[in-house]
Each structure stands twice: as structure tokens, then as C-alpha cells.
């Protein structure tokens, strides 16, 4: 098996998690917060997929998040792709379970900070959010993303690893 379609199978396997996060956002709509996990879900695949597959996977995850939200095209996807390439190139950064956890938290937080900033810049003229309020809101949103990543990375990672095992991808060869 050449595993050419591995990234797509992984995407299908990951999508329910994203959907779950959307549902959570929907039922917690009064909070006015987005339950964002798209950053966390790219970490595990990056350990085992080939780089081009990583890129496709990360881009798709990013575009899925953007597709139904009024944020500029590509803002999440391109950041995710950049981070995916980086993690894929320095696999030693995610060599152990605890490293994966740190990476998931960091990546999820960074991507959140990115889209929050871009969304703010885009709607700044219309909304009455000033800089201080923005900092407060961004902190809330980033913290939530970090917490979500910390809580969910373990089950997500287990599920994704299971799918990759099933496809027959080689186990991560991480030698620092």
C-alpha cells in the first residue's frame, strides 16, 4: 500500500472531532466563544505522514474551519500548513507523549491567536472592540483553545494513531 490517500482517510477520521467542537460551540453559543481544536488535530499526523501529506492534511483542516466563518480566506489554513511543515521537519519536538501535548497546546493557541487577530482587524471598523477589550477577548479565546487542546489531544491522538495503524503507515521514526 502506497498510502497516497492516507491524509484523506485521516481527514475523514478527524472530521467528527471538528464537528464535535462545532456542536459544542453551538450549544454554548451564549458564551460567545469558539471551541477551536483544529490546531491540535494536526500534531499526531505530522509525526507519521509524509510532508506533502501533512501539508494537504493541515490545509484541509484549516479550510474546513474557515469555510463557514467570516474570516479571510487562507488565514487559518496557511498558518496550519506552516506549522505542519515545521513540526514535520523537527519531529524530535514531538518525540514523546508529553511533547505531543505541549506541541498541541502551543499550536492550537498560536493558530487561535492568529485568526482572532485577523478577525479583529477585519471587523475593527464596524465593531466597538477597542484594543484593551481585544486583549481580554483574545486571552479568553486563546486560553480556551489551550485548555481544549490539553484535554482532547490524548483521545484525538489515540484515534488518529489507530487509523494510521489500520492504514498501515510505518510507526514514527523519531531519532532526534
Amino acid at each position: 500500500m502506497t498510502h497516497r490517500g492516507a491524509w484523506f482517510l485521516l481527514l475523514l477520521a478527524t472530521y467528527p472531532w471538528l464537528l464535535g467542537a462545532d456542536l459544542l460551540s453551538s450549544s454554548m453559543a451564549t458564551w460567545g466563544l469558539s471551541f477551536f481544536i483544529s490546531g491540535a488535530v494536526i500534531v499526531t499526523p505530522c509525526r507519521r505522514l509524509k510532508r506533502w501529506q501533512c501539508v494537504l492534511f493541515a490545509a484541509s483542516i484549516g479550510f474546513l474551519y474557515e469555510a463557514m466563518r467570516p474570516i479571510p480566506d487562507g488565514s487559518v489554513a496557511l498558518v496550519l500548513v506552516f506549522l505542519a511543515i515545521y513540526v514535520n521537519s523537527y519531529r524530535s519536538l514531538v518525540r514523546s507523549a508529553s511533547h505531543v501535548l505541549y506541541a498541541a497546546i502551543t499550536i492550537n493557541a498560536v493558530v487561535t491567536l492568529t485568526w482572532v487577530t485577523i478577525a479583529h482587524l477585519q471587523c475593527a471598523p464596524a465593531s466597538s472592540v477597542d484594543t484593551f477589550t481585544f486583549l481580554y477577548l483574545a486571552t479568553l479565546q486563546v486560553s480556551l483553545s489551550a485548555i481544549l487542546a490539553a484535554l482532547l489531544i490524548s483521545p484525538i491522538s489515540t484515534a488518529q494513531n489507530w487509523v494510521m495503524d489500520a492504514i498501515g503507515l510505518p510507526v514514527a521514526d523519531i531519532t532526534a
Binding site: Y90, S92, L93, R95, S96, A97, I174, T175, A176
Partner: peptide
């Protein structure tokens, strides 16, 4: 997953 630590 015990691997030698990377030069950080």
C-alpha cells in the same frame, strides 16, 4: 517512546 533528547 524513549528517544535521545534533541539538542534544543
Amino acid at each position: 517512546m524513549s528517544v535521545p533528547s534533541a539538542p534544543l
